[in-house]
Design a protein around this nucleic acid. Structure first.
Lengths: 206, 206
DNA sequence: CAAATGACTAAGCGCTTGCTTAGTCTGTCA
DNA sequence: TGACAGACTAAGCAAGCGCTTAGTCATTTG
């Protein structure tokens, strides 16, 4: 339910192995969210998944591999959401608003995963970090392109495209710091608020 | 240089003890920033401060006490910055812009401390967490009050005061996630960008 | 139906952890 | 000058760490 979907719709065949891998990813998400990556033990992950410590290593070679799997899924999934939003309309202002809305909604729904992915980036190996960094550049590019298109169409007033793109992403991403599902605010409400604020941030004034 | 000032202008007397405490705080900031709280060993902190592991415990009873000291200083200091900004002008729109500007500038200048303080909140003891949570409520209140004042003066258009306050804080706080001092953007430039965006977010349109 | 496969466990290895103990050294003050 | 206080170190303890080894068991395959 709070596990993000794997990149292929879900990586399930009927086999036992991939089901166990899913249990491990879910267990690792719970553990990392509760104690952080360095503060989580492989024994904790194993027991949350209902198996012995050694069984973890049948499916993932290291604890960091589990973090990488979570991070990769999170980034691929949210990048896809953003891309779909970007392609859903031709109106530049609507596009930016929809992108922010969907990106915020994603981060609210998957706030646990988002927190792990954002705060434990530095715990990845240099190789894995490079792959994740590429997804992040992709995310930033999509927003920058949407802003540039709006400026060139004369429908937006954005002095600093790069800085504004980062600010729009901050709005969405930072909510993983404080948002808790089941609280007074729904993901949909947050998404609408952020979309409205985004419109104001990029619209021509007066 | 990147240590935040202690709450009394600086907690220095001439004595040896408080100077050593400062060295420990600085060493802990470096270590926590590099490896996270759980990933940092007391031996690492000690050696960065140029002393034996046992010497740390003369000044701080636990590793968590060092984190709390850093967190307390960071919150008190940034809260003070925000309060001073709030009192610096009577114009509601200028006030919000100045608050965002100063809060962003603080987080850029002390981005290492900001990252520790934001990401390791959960590593504090429940008691310490309560004290820090109170500072955070104070910060949110200041922003909410500034927005409410602007709405009541008829100079702002803010539908959701609480949500917009959180969004303005996100703009400032989230920069600790990606900002690195010495990069292409100065704290001052970021502060101005965020102040302009904040104005657009709360201004009456058309 | 024997051989092979692969998920899984019990036990544990070598190392590191936060923190303590016991004692040394330096500077202060009666 | 000698008793004392407090900053500091060398050594180490108990616990817990990531990960491995050796082997069990159920299922698949020729």
């Amino acid at each position: 339910m709070s596990t993000i979907p794997a990149s292929p719709p879900a990586s399930d065949d009927g086999d036992r192995s991939s089901a166990t891998r899913e249990r491990l990813v879910e267990a690792a998400i719970e553990a990392f969210a509760a104690s952080g990556f360095a503060g989580t033990t492989t024994r904790d992950i194993a027991s949350r998944a209902g198996m012995s410590p050694a069984a973890v290593y049948v499916h993932y070679a290291t604890k960091e591999d589990l973090l990488f799997e979570i991070s990769r899924r999170g980034h691929r999934n949210s990048l896809q959401i953003l891309k779909t939003a970007a392609e859903s309309t031709d109106d530049p202002l609507d596009r930016v608003a929809l992108m922010v809305s969907e990106f915020s909604r994603w981060h609210a729904v998957y706030s646990r995963v988002g927190r792990i992915v954002q705060y434990e980036f530095g715990a990845l190996t240099p190789e894995h970090r490079r792959e994740i960094a590429a997804y992040r550049r992709g995310i930033e590019s999509l927003v920058r392109e949407a802003l540039t298109a709006g400026v060139e169409a004369g429908e937006m007033d954005v002095e600093d495209v790069k800085g504004t793109a980062l600010a729009l992403l901050s709005l969405s991403i930072d909510l993983v710091r404080w948002y808790r599902p089941g609280g007074p605010v729904t993901p949909k409400e947050l998404a609408e608020l952020h979309a409205n604020l985004a419109r104001k941030m990029v619209s021509r004034q007066r």
